[in-house]
């Protein structure tokens, strides 16, 4: 990016080294988790920590056998993907209307939406629990999908709104002059221009739903439980079985972390909410 002038100055080397050091310190707990998942239980709690040992896959097979990892993983995939799609379908038209036909109340509506997100979920826990119980929706993927969608909706609308707002109105007006209907305008002009925004919003929603713990812990158990509940179930009774705990944790976070690595640029770009031009 910057022009190549004499690079290897002491400050440069020092700065590069400290950047690496910081990154490794922040990443270290995850590395530790990964390494522990390949140890036997005895090696896992050895002091000082072992870094050279013969890796075993025993923990992973045991997690799958004992608690059916794939069942929970499937629940996580279904709930996060479907709630993301549903959320995009509801948030996109709303954000479009707010960005391109703003009224004097648009800002207020947006702030109100965000304020619903600030209310603690626990405040709605008892009513939602009772509603789910009475409608037979307790421990179903359906209720989780709806709840994930609703709780992500304010952020999604806001994100898409800030994205749409940066699209020049003239382009849409030109299309309108040429006699395009709202639907055509949306499909042929807006959609191609806002793929980036839709992608980042979808990515964020996917990550948030995958990692959501409050509702899944309180509303689901064996049937619709997601990976977040599977991990929590390994916490209390087997607190000290570190190797197995690590294996189940690695299995729970690996899909989304790897997915995140590939999409981080896009995701972060969207998360700046138009703060960066």
């Amino acid at each position: 990016m910057s022009n190549k002038k004499s690079v290897w100055t002491p400050t440069y080397i020092l700065r590069s080294l400290s950047a690496w050091l910081v990154a490794l310190v922040i990443f270290f707990p995850l590395l530790f988790l990964l390494v522990t998942s390949f140890k036997t239980e005895l090696q896992a709690i050895a002091v000082p920590s072992m870094w050279l040992f013969e890796p075993t896959l025993e923990n992973f097979t045991e997690v799958q056998e004992r608690s059916d990892y794939l069942h929970y993983a499937w629940n996580s995939v279904v709930t996060s993907v479907l709630s993301t799609l549903l959320g995009l379908a509801v948030a996109t038209p709303a954000a479009y209307a707010m960005a391109f036909n703003p009224t004097k109340h648009t800002k207020d509506v947006l702030m109100w939406m965000l304020s619903t997100k600030m209310m603690p979920a626990v405040g709605a826990l008892v009513p939602i629990y009772i509603l789910c119980q009475n409608t037979g929706l307790l421990d179903t993927k359906f209720s989780l999908i709806i709840i994930f969608t609703l709780s992500n909706l304010p952020i999604m609308v806001w994100m898409l709104y800030s994205y749409f707002k940066d699209i020049p109105h003239e382009i849409l007006e030109a299309a309108r002059m040429d006699g395009a209907t709202v639907a055509q305008e949306f499909r042929h002009v807006l959609l191609p221009l806002s793929m980036g925004g839709l992608a980042s919003t979808g990515l964020l929603c996917l990550v948030l739903s995958w990692n959501e713990a409050f509702w899944s812990l309180n509303l689901t158990s064996a049937n619709a439980g997601t990976l977040a509940t599977l991990v929590a179930s390994y916490s209390s009774p087997e607190g000290l079985f570190w190797a197995k705990l690590s294996a189940v944790s690695v299995l729970a976070i690996a899909p989304i972390v790897v997915f995140g690595w590939f999409s981080q640029k896009q995701l972060v770009q969207g998360l700046t909410f138009g703060a960066v031009k």
């Binding site: 910081v22 990154a23 490794l24 922040i26 990443f27 707990p29 995850l30 530790f32 988790l33 522990t36 990550v207 995958w210 990692n211 713990a213 812990l217 990976l227 977040a228 991990v231 929590a232 390994y234 916490s235 607190g239 000290l240 570190w242 705990l245 690590s246 944790s249 729970a252 976070i253 989304i256 972390v257 997915f259 995140g260 690595w261 981080q264 972060v268």
Partner: peptide, 21 residues
């Protein structure tokens, strides 16, 4: 990539990882 990683970790794993290991 190393820096962003913790952001993708679910809260339950985050908590157990720090609590125990």
């Amino acid at each position: 990539i190393l820096l962003i990683s913790p952001f993708f970790v679910m809260p339950t794993v985050n908590a157990l990882l720090w609590k125990h290991m």
